[in-house]
Computed example of a mutant assay.
Amino acid sequence: MSSLLSLYKAKEKNGTEMSAKKTFLVPLSELYIEPGYNVREIDQAHIEEFRDAYIAGEFVPPLAVQVTDKGIKIIDGHHRYHGALLATQSGTEIPRLECKDFSGTEADRIAFMVTSSQGKPLTSLERAAAYQRLANQGWEPAEIAKRVKRSPSDVDHHLQLLTCGDELIEMVKSGAVAATTAVALSREHGPKAGAVALEQMAKVKAAGKTKLSRSAAIPLFSATKARRLVELVAQAEIYSNDEADFMLAMDTSEEIKQIVADYRAGFPGKWEDS
C-alpha cells in the first residue's frame, strides 16, 4: 500500500501537485501554557474526552505552537495538552504530542484561536473577550470581522456584551440570560439594565422558571392599547396658544392616563429618577 509520503517523494514522476507541511513530535515536558492566553475557559469534561481518545489510541489533531525563550508555547490545543497529561496520570504514557508551527502576529494568533475548528466552540463571553483583545490592539470592528470571518454586526454585538455590567455578565455566564437578551436590555435601559434584569429574573423564578427570556426581560406593550392611545390623541382638539399644543376631551383624559400608567408599569426601572 502506498502512502502520502511515497506519493510526495515521487511527485516529479506522477505529476501530483502535493506540498508538505511538517509536523513535529514534541515532548510534553517542553510544552507550556501561558496563563490567561487561551480565549476558551478550560472545560474538564472536554479534557476527559481527549484523555479517553489518547488512551484508546485515536487520532488527535496536532497542536499549534510557537517557540519562545520559555519553551514551546501552545497557541491552539490547550484541552488536547491537558488531556494528554491526564492520560499519562492514568497510566497511559504519552511521551510526545504532534505539533505544528504557527507563524504570524499576535492578532493572527488570537484570530486563529477564534476560528479554529479543532477547539471547543466559544461561548459568547469568550468570543467577546477575544474580540476585545483584538480591539485593544487597535483593530476596528470591520477589520476584526474580516479577520475572524464573522459579520461586523456580530463583532459589535459581542463588544457591546462586555459593557452590559457585572450583574448581566454574571447572568450570561450562568446561563440565566442569553447574550442577545443581555445586550438588548443594556440598549433599552442603559446603566439600569442590571437592576431591571434582576427584578425581572425574580419574577420568572417566582413562576418556577430558571431562565429570563427576551419577552420576559423586555415586555412588549399591548398593540391594542397602543392603537387606542393613538385614536384618543387623534381625537384631541389642537390649540396654538401658550398653554397647550392640544386639548384632550374630558371623557378621554382618564383613559389616556390609565394607558400611560400601564405602559410605565410594564417597564420597571425605566421611569425612575426621570
Rank of each mutant, 00 (worst) to 15 (best):
Pro95Cys: 05
Gln66Arg: 15
Lys9Pro: 01
Leu248Trp: 12
Asp242Arg: 11
His82Arg: 11
Lys21Gln: 13
Ala206Gln: 02
Glu58Asp: 10
Ala236Ser: 15
His82Lys: 11
Glu106Gln: 13
Lys11Glu: 08
Ser117Ile: 15
His78Arg: 01
Ala56Pro: 00
Gly165Arg: 00
Phe112Thr: 07
Pro191Asp: 12
Val196Trp: 06
Tyr239Arg: 14
Gln118Asp: 15
Thr180Arg: 10
Thr210Met: 07
Glu98Phe: 09
Phe246Tyr: 15
Met113His: 05
Lys9Tyr: 15
Gln66Pro: 03
Tyr239Thr: 15
Ser124Tyr: 02
Ile55Val: 15
Glu199Gly: 11
Ile33Leu: 14
Leu134Lys: 03
Tyr239Trp: 13
Pro35Tyr: 02
Lys192Ala: 14
Ser117Leu: 12
Ala111Phe: 13
Cys164Ile: 08
Ala216Cys: 05
Ala45Phe: 10
Tyr81Ser: 03
Gln132Pro: 01
Ala179Arg: 08
Leu28Thr: 04
Arg264Lys: 14
Gln137Ser: 12
Gly91Ile: 08
Asp166Leu: 10
Gly91Cys: 04
Thr210Ser: 13
Lys120Glu: 09
Met18Cys: 05
Ala176Gln: 10
Glu254Arg: 06
Gly208Ser: 00
Val114Phe: 15
Glu254Lys: 11
Ile110Glu: 03
Leu162Gln: 02
Arg150Ile: 14
Ala56Ser: 08
Ser253Asn: 12
Gly57Pro: 02
Gly71His: 01
Ala184Val: 09
Leu86Ser: 09
Asp69Val: 07
Thr210Tyr: 00
Met247Glu: 14
Leu212Ile: 02
Arg187Lys: 14
Lys146Gly: 13
His158Ser: 06
Ser253Asp: 10
Leu31Arg: 04
Val230Leu: 13
Leu212Trp: 04
Leu198Phe: 02
Gln235Lys: 07
Lys9Asn: 13
Leu85Arg: 10
Met113Trp: 01
Gly269Glu: 00
Asp52Lys: 05
Leu28Glu: 03
Ala261Glu: 09
Asp108Phe: 11
Ile42Trp: 06
Ala56Phe: 00
Leu229Asn: 06
Ile169Ala: 04
Ser29Ala: 15
Arg214Ile: 06
Leu162Glu: 05
Thr123Ala: 05
Leu212Val: 03
Lys120Asp: 03
Gly165His: 04
Asp108Leu: 05
Lys209Val: 02
Asp43Gln: 03
Ala64Glu: 08
Glu58Thr: 05
Ile256Lys: 06
Leu122Trp: 02
Pro219Phe: 07
Leu168Glu: 03
Leu134Gln: 07
Gly138Leu: 09
Val65Arg: 05
Leu31Phe: 11
Glu199Trp: 09
Phe267Lys: 12
Ala111Ile: 05
Lys192Gly: 06
Ala142Phe: 15
Tyr131Lys: 05
Ala193Lys: 08
His46Leu: 02
Met201Glu: 00
Gln137Thr: 10
Gln160Val: 05
Val177Pro: 00
Ser222Ala: 12
Phe24Lys: 08
His82Ala: 11
Pro152Gln: 07
Ala107Gln: 12
Gly208Val: 01
Tyr131Asn: 04
Val67Gly: 08
Ala20Gly: 03
Thr23Phe: 07
Tyr32Met: 04
Arg80Ile: 03
Thr88Cys: 07
Glu98Ala: 14
Leu122Asp: 06
Glu231Gly: 10
His82Met: 08
Tyr54Asn: 04
Lys120Pro: 00
Asp166Ala: 12
Ala10Tyr: 10
Lys149Met: 10
Asp245Met: 15
Tyr37Arg: 10
Val60Phe: 00
Leu134Glu: 09
Gly57Leu: 11
His158Cys: 07
Met247Thr: 13
Asn241Tyr: 13
